[in-house]
């Protein structure tokens, strides 16, 4: 019994004009595929940042209160941003090295807008931990910048990777000076 009914379709189609029947079948499948894709997109896109998340994508910070040699941490898009008011010595050391020798060659001057103010995202470029070195007394690593305790990456006073597994320098977020004392990150 099963055999008499098995797999109709090809043999049952209109033998006089198989091309037309094939076209209908292919067009139906194509239409179904387009419909399925159109329905799937909203289900996937809902995982992207929502409107209210995007609305919180910038942070304003008053940087005038940071004393020379001190640093603060602010939150931007849920991540820490390190803002360090560097000393003359720290700036000099950041510029002393030939950047071509670095793993991720970047001049200090392209990483800052004002030399005394370094703004970097405080997330290790290795696997996303927050490096130490913001607070007085914390380990700052061999290059007096930051040290990531997770896997031992050392960053210098310009936030550049000098030693350890991290592949790139600490990221400099987009920011601008709204006035001499206030910056807007993002």
């Amino acid at each position: 019994m099963a055999n008499t009914n098995s797999k109709p379709g090809a043999s049952d189609t209109d033998v006089r004009d198989p091309g037309r029947r094939d076209f209908i079948v292919v067009a139906t499948y194509a239409m179904g595929a387009v419909g399925a894709a159109a329905v799937t997109w909203p289900l996937i896109d809902q995982m992207n940042p929502a409107a209210d998340t995007l609305a919180l994508a910038s942070t304003e910070v008053d940087v005038s209160k940071i004393a020379e040699g001190q640093a603060i941490t602010v939150t931007w898009r849920g991540k820490p941003v390190f803002i360090r008011h560097r000393t003359g010595d720290e700036i000099a050391r950041a510029n002393a090295i030939d950047s071509a020798e670095l793993r991720h060659p970047e001049e200090d001057e392209i990483r800052v807008q004002k030399p005394e103010l370094l703004v970097v995202v405080g997330v290790c470029t290795h696997l996303g931990c927050v490096p130490l070195g913001q607070k007085t007394g914390e380990v700052k690593g061999e290059y007096d910048g930051w040290f990531c305790p997770c896997h031992g990456s050392h960053y210098d006073t310009s936030g550049r990777i000098r030693k350890g597994p991290a592949p790139t320098n600490l990221e400099v977020p987009p920011y601008s000076f709204l006035s001499d004392s206030v910056i807007r990150i993002g």
Binding site: W41, L43, A51
Partner: peptide, 13 residues
């Protein structure tokens, strides 16, 4: 309400 207003296509879903 956030689903209805802010989440991408949330109102539709």
């Amino acid at each position: 309400e956030r689903i209805m207003r802010d989440v991408n296509h949330g109102w539709l879903i």
